[in-house]
Amino acid sequence: RLIESLSQMLSMGFSDEGGWLTRLLQTKNYDIGAALDTIQ
């Protein structure tokens, strides 16, 4: 599930440099909407 969510976020133009996006998705239970809300 992480790989699916991460690949979708990467395709939106986000980077996972340093693993920050992986950690964010894990804390949000791989919910892309919740991750995007946090980023904004």
Rank of each mutant, 00 (worst) to 15 (best):
L6V: 05
T22G: 04
G13V: 07
M9S: 00
G19E: 08
S7A: 14
E17G: 06
S7R: 11
T38M: 13
W20R: 04
S15I: 12
G19C: 12
E17M: 09
E4Q: 11
D37G: 12
Q8K: 06
L10F: 12
A35P: 01
I39F: 05
A35H: 03
L25R: 00
E17F: 04
F14T: 03
G19F: 07
W20I: 02
G18V: 02
I3S: 08
S5Q: 03
Y30P: 04
E17A: 10
Q40P: 02
K28Y: 11
Y30L: 07
D37I: 15
M9H: 01
T38W: 15
T38N: 10
R1P: 11
L2P: 07
G19S: 07
T38S: 15
I3K: 14
L6W: 05
A34G: 09
L25Y: 02
D31T: 02
T38E: 14
R1W: 11
M12N: 04
S5H: 03
N29W: 12
R23T: 14
G19P: 01
N29A: 10
I32Y: 05
D37P: 02
D31S: 07
D31P: 03
Y30T: 04
Q8F: 13
D37W: 13
L10S: 07
G13L: 06
E4A: 06
S15G: 06
D37E: 15
L10D: 02
G33P: 10
L25T: 03
A35D: 02
L2D: 08
D31G: 03
S7F: 13
T38R: 06
L6G: 00
L2G: 05
A35Y: 06
G18D: 13
Q26R: 08
T38H: 15
S5A: 14
E17R: 08
Y30H: 06
L6P: 00
L36I: 12
S5M: 12
M12G: 01
D16Y: 04
L10N: 06
M12T: 05
S15Q: 10
L2S: 04
L24V: 04
Q26A: 06
I39P: 04
T22H: 02
L36A: 05
G13F: 06
A35W: 09
R1F: 11
T22D: 02
L2V: 07
T27H: 14
E17L: 11
F14V: 03
S5K: 11
W20G: 01
T22P: 01
A35R: 01
D31F: 04
D37S: 14
S7K: 15
L24F: 06
L36N: 03
S11N: 09
A35I: 10
G18H: 10
T22R: 11
I3H: 15
G13Q: 05
S11P: 01
I32N: 02
L24W: 04
D31E: 09
L25V: 02
M9A: 03
L2F: 08
A35Q: 03
I32W: 12
A34K: 11
Q8T: 13
F14L: 07
D16H: 04
S15T: 15
G13T: 03
T27I: 14
A35S: 08
L10Y: 11
T22F: 02
S11V: 12
E4P: 07
D16T: 04
L21N: 01
L24Q: 01
I3Y: 14
S7T: 12
L10G: 03
M12Q: 02
I39K: 00
M12V: 03
T22Y: 04
Y30S: 05
E17K: 07
R23N: 11
K28P: 06
L2A: 05
L36M: 09
R1V: 11
R23E: 14
T27S: 12
L21Y: 01
M9K: 01
L36K: 04
L10E: 08
K28R: 05
L25I: 05
Q8Y: 14
M9D: 00
E17S: 08
W20Y: 10
F14M: 04
E4G: 03
G33Y: 15
A35L: 10
I32T: 06
L10R: 05
R23M: 13
T22N: 07
F14E: 01
E4D: 10
Q26D: 07
G18T: 07
N29T: 03
S15E: 07
L10T: 06
A35E: 02
Y30F: 09
L21D: 02
L6Q: 00
T27P: 03
M12Y: 06
G33M: 14
L10M: 10
S15D: 15
S5V: 15
S7L: 12
T22V: 06
I32P: 05
Y30M: 03
S7G: 09
Q40K: 14
M9G: 01
G18M: 07
R23S: 06
G33F: 15
T22S: 13
D37A: 14
I3E: 15
R1S: 11
W20N: 01
R23H: 13
I3T: 10
G19T: 02
T27G: 11
T22E: 05
L24S: 00
R1Y: 09
L2I: 07
D16R: 00
Q40E: 12
L25F: 04
K28H: 15
A34H: 09
S11D: 09
I3L: 12
Y30N: 08
L25G: 02
Q8H: 11
S5F: 03
I32K: 04
M9Y: 02
L6F: 06
E17I: 12
D31W: 09
N29H: 08
Q40Y: 15
D31R: 01
T27E: 15
I3D: 14
S15W: 10
G33I: 14
L25Q: 02
W20P: 00
G19A: 01
R23V: 13
T27C: 15
Y30A: 05
D37K: 14
D37N: 11
I32D: 02
L25N: 03
G33H: 14
G18R: 07
Y30V: 06
I39S: 04
D16S: 03
T22I: 10
W20L: 03
G19L: 04
W20K: 03
Q8M: 13
S7E: 11
G13I: 07
E4R: 07
N29V: 07
S11Q: 13
T27Q: 15
L36S: 05
L24H: 01
T27D: 15
N29P: 05
A34F: 06
M9Q: 00
E4H: 09
M9L: 12
E4N: 10
I39N: 00
F14K: 03
R23I: 14
L2M: 08
Q8S: 08
R1T: 13
L24T: 00
R1H: 11
R23L: 13
D37Y: 13
T38I: 14
T22W: 07
T27V: 11
W20E: 05
R1N: 08
G13Y: 02
G18K: 08
L6N: 00
I39H: 04
L6D: 00
I3P: 07
R23G: 07
G33N: 15
S15R: 10
Q26I: 15
L2Y: 12
L21M: 11
F14D: 02
G13K: 01
M12E: 04
E17T: 09
M9P: 00
R23K: 12
R1A: 09
G19I: 00
M12I: 08
L21H: 01
L2N: 05
R1M: 14
L24E: 03
R1L: 14
W20Q: 00
W20A: 05
G13E: 04
I32F: 08
L36Y: 06
L21W: 03
E4Y: 09
E4S: 12
G19V: 00
L10V: 11
A35N: 05
E4V: 10
W20F: 07
N29R: 05
G13D: 05
L24A: 03
Q26Y: 07
Q40M: 15
D31H: 07
L21P: 00
L2R: 05
L6I: 10
Q40N: 15
K28L: 15
W20T: 03
I32R: 02
E4I: 07
D31N: 11
M12H: 04
E4L: 11
K28G: 06
Q26S: 12
M9F: 08
L36H: 02
L10W: 06
Q40T: 10
L2W: 09
